[in-house]
Amino acid sequence: MKPARADQGADGIRGKKHKMDLKLTDKRALVTGSTSGLGAATAKMLAAEGAAVVVHGRDRDRAERTAREIRAAGGVADIALGDLANDEGAAEAARAATAHGPIDILVNNAGFYRHLTWTEATPDEWRDAYDINVVSGVRMIRLLVPAMRERGWGRVVTIGGGLASQPMNTHPQYNATLAARHNLAVSLARELKGTGVTSNVVSPGAIVVEAVQELVMELAPARGWGRTWEEVHRNAVEALVPNDQERFGEPDEIAAAVAYLCGDHAQYISGATIRVDGGTVRSAF
C-alpha cells in the first residue's frame, strides 16, 4: 500500500476534509463566572458550537451584556444571577439556569484571586478563598449533577491552573484552592463511574485576560521589559512563564479545550487534567 501524499488524507482522497461535530446542538450549558475573561470566552464558544448557554454572574448588566453578544452572533443565551459563595445564592443561580430546561454541561469557572504574601494571607483569607473557589463549585455540582446522572449524560468541566501542582511562595491560599479544584474533579469522576457523566479539569497557563495584561504592564517599567505590549509580552513571558510556545495563551484556546471535553468525542475522557499552557516549565506568577 502506497503512503498518502502530503496533500491527501490517510484515506488517500485528495482534498477531503472532515469536520468535527461536537454534537452540542441539543445541550444546555451553564458557565459560572462568565461575564468576562475565560468564562465569557467559554460561553461564547459553546454557543458557537450550538449549545444553549446560561451566562452566570452577580451583576445583571454585565451578564446581560455577554448574553446579548452571544445572541448577536446567532447563539442562544439566558442569564443566571447569584453569589455562589453561599447556599442561597447558589440555589438561586441553579433555579434560573434550569428555568428553560435541564443543564447538561456545567463549567465550574467562577473563582476569586488575591495576590497576598504568607504574612498577609490570614486564616480568614484562606477560608474566604476556599469557600469561593472550592465550595462554590461543590454547591453547583450537588445542585445540578444528580439530574445529569438520572438522564445518563452530562459533562462537568472544572477550570484549574498550573499553580495547583507548581505553587508559588505568594498567594498560598489561591494555590491551595486550585489544587483542591483539581482533586475534587477527579474524585467526582470516580463517583460518576458508569453513569454517562464525565468530570475533567482544564488547566490554563498564563492567559491574556484583561487583569493579566494590566498586571504585566504594571510590572514592566521596574523590570525593564519595554513600553509597548509587543516588547513587554516577549520579555514578560521569558521572565514569568517560559514555555515552548514563547507567548501567553488566549482565552479562546482555553474555551476550545472546554468545548472539546463537552462533546461526544470526549466520552472516553474522565478524571483527566488537560493542560493548556504552551508547555510551561515553571511559573513565577
Rank of each mutant, 00 (worst) to 15 (best):
W118E: 06
W118V: 14
E120R: 01
A121P: 05
D128H: 07
Y130D: 04
Y130S: 08
N133D: 08
S136Y: 07
G137M: 01
V138L: 12
R139M: 14
I141T: 10
I141L: 09
R142Y: 05
M148V: 03
R149N: 06
R149C: 13
E150R: 08
E150H: 05
R151C: 10
G152I: 14
V156W: 05
V157L: 03
G162E: 09
S165A: 14
Q166K: 08
N169Q: 08
T170L: 14
P172G: 05
Q173P: 05
Y174R: 03
Y174L: 09
A176H: 03
T177W: 05
L178Y: 00
A179G: 14
R181G: 10
R181L: 13
H182K: 06
H182R: 09
N183F: 11
V186F: 06
L188A: 05
G194Q: 07
G196K: 05
V201R: 02
V201Y: 00
P204F: 04
V208Q: 04
E210I: 08
A211C: 04
V212K: 01
Q213S: 03
E214L: 11
L215F: 11
E218C: 07
W225G: 04
W225C: 03
W229R: 05
H233Y: 02
H233G: 08
R234A: 15
N235P: 06
A236I: 00
E238N: 05
R247T: 13
E250A: 14
P251G: 10
D252G: 08
E253A: 13
